[in-house]
Design a protein around this nucleic acid. Structure first.
Lengths: 100, 100
DNA sequence: CCTATATTTGAATAATTGTTCATATATTCA
DNA sequence: TGAATATATGAACAATTATTCAAATATAGG
């Protein structure tokens, strides 16, 4: 296994780690429909704004979401079109799997 | 969000968590080509047999690999055909993403 | 039986991580 | 300027996790 190959698995592993959190997946799922402010996400997921904000920072750092301020509020939306495709793809197959 | 919806993200998150480890991804990648004994995997990944064995138990528990004994050795192979499809799909898109 | 080899197992450890809480920052409006 | 609201930030905490180490188990061959 070359250094490059190892690197691919490191990157892929990192991606899966980011997605390996229920809260982050649920945030991305909400944002797929439309952009939302932090507070709205918090209410929908029944969590504190702080917890949501922390997760949004992680998602933003990894360029999965972007933000835009409008007055006191900050709207978040998906930045990467690919991502939800991957998630949906995974979702279908996981559900297939569960049936079997 | 219904309880069922939440459940989907929990399951999906769990799947991603399993895949969110470089060692496990590399093991699965090796097994995609052919079945291997624990020791062979350990050598290929330059890790101890114990570390590999621990990870194999996790993969087996989640029904991603299966094992078969042959004398003193135990051969592992992929159990789920879907899985590597998902991984490959993710891999291609992650690499696409990196370019952008 | 005894030894050597392959693998598993359990405890211990260090590292990472998600949430909470308190506080800080930014913005609006009076 | 001051109060109110929205969000971000940092420290602390508990929980999870990957690897290591030592010991246990299983198998084959002498």
């Amino acid at each position: 296994m070359t250094k490059v190959d190892k690197d691919i698995f490191l990157k892929l592993g990192q991606f899966y780690k980011i997605m390996g959190d229920e809260t982050r997946l649920r945030i991305l799922n909400l944002l797929e429909k439309r952009e939302l402010k932090v507070g709205e996400i918090a209410i929908r997921l029944e969590m504190t704004s702080s917890a949501i904000s922390h997760q949004l920072q992680i998602l933003r750092y990894h360029k999965l979401v972007k933000s835009r301020r409008e007055g006191k509020e900050i709207y978040y939306s998906l930045q990467d079109d690919h991502i939800m495709g991957i998630v949906k793809y995974g979702m279908e197959h996981i559900l297939e799997r569960k049936k079997a």
